[in-house]
Design a protein around this nucleic acid. Sequence first.
DNA 1: TATTCTTTTTGCCAAATGGCAAGTGCCTTG
DNA 2: CAAGGCACTTGCCATTTGGCAAAAAGAATA
Lengths: 214, 214
Amino acid sequence: MRGDGKKAFLPNDKFHPSRYLYLYQMETFIEYILQFGNLNKQQIELIKSKGREIELQKDELYWEAGKTVRQIGFLTEGVLRVYYYNNKGEEITRYFIDENHLILSGNTIDEIYTPAEYLSAITICKMVVFSKQDWKEILDTIVGWDTILQKIIAKHHSEKISRRSELIAQDATERYLDFIQKFPTLVNRVPLSYIASYLGITQSSLSRIRKTIR
Amino acid sequence: MRGDGKKAFLPNDKFHPSRYLYLYQMETFIEYILQFGNLNKQQIELIKSKGREIELQKDELYWEAGKTVRQIGFLTEGVLRVYYYNNKGEEITRYFIDENHLILSGNTIDEIYTPAEYLSAITICKMVVFSKQDWKEILDTIVGWDTILQKIIAKHHSEKISRRSELIAQDATERYLDFIQKFPTLVNRVPLSYIASYLGITQSSLSRIRKTIR
DNA sequence: TATTCTTTTTGCCAAATGGCAAGTGCCTTG
DNA sequence: CAAGGCACTTGCCATTTGGCAAAAAGAATA
């Protein structure tokens, strides 16, 4: 899968697959960042030196409500979901996070961030993570980094708002059609019940709706 | 109303009511900003020198879909609403903006921002506005201004997201109860039809719901 | 105060969605 | 291959919400 059989690696080689894999995730992150602003080689090296790759297993928690978040993460593979419990104790999916999204705890670096919600992996996820400290160092070192961040945040922001508010004006069928149009890559990877709670309908209704569509 | 009859002003006096009114709006803005970070006198003066007060009449547009936004605004009095038209041509209220909120067109300064939605005044509104150019000058001059902004943006962001996503998991009655709890100051100032479209229900349903509640 | 315009409430009925529980299909595990 | 566990589907019926149009209530204006 990774490397596509182009090269054979020997263990302990500095190009050992695991190392290569690491670079691959990081490369994706850099590529993403460069969409929002330019960075020179030195700056890119700094970022690379600070990032660390992690993998989350299915259903593994990345955030937990009430527990301090100490990392900034970038998702390169997999799907996460953010959810909370409403006053009836039901688990409600607030939104999904798919590939190539930054996960900025609370958006500000110097503050301690304690989410009121949970963030867990729907599928196996691969991420690049930075400690808050390293992230702050990047922020202090790279001129223009904050501008890049602001752009990314603004983009995420408007995405989320518009997705959400359009949902509410639609009936259940329209919501689902909208969902598969906006998240074509998620439909087949995310359990029905999560999609249903995201759309604000019951799982059985969604199942029926799905039947009428095809 | 303003000034509360404490003083009598003479026309052309530098303390003439209109001048005083101006300062009052600006004062509110400064006060708001200071919640998010410190500024020295000189910095405050710079901001004051750049801001301009405007008043919007009822139903007057502040943004128009497809038209470039050239201002940053801060609402000190009144209520605005952001709305768009769905594919059935219905007007959907995306959210309300009440007192003490910054209206940052697209969040980034140097870009041209062309909204896809409308922003208009529900009541008479008083605002402090800055041209993008002046705003940029403030940004370039005041160290830490961007940090303050980021905090404000982050706050607005999480407010909006959580308000929206909680709505979708509730039935119509809960949505309304939630609304009056979260926007106690709006309920009596905003026409029923706007609230209904914000909550994703019809006006007549909302009217019926309101009857059952009290 | 009468007139008109706008906003909100209602009645009636249809359509959409929920609740619950059982059924089906698929995958895992022994 | 059998047994159990999930995830999804379905049936049946209750409840909620919508659609439409008319009535009522409030506001604005002359």
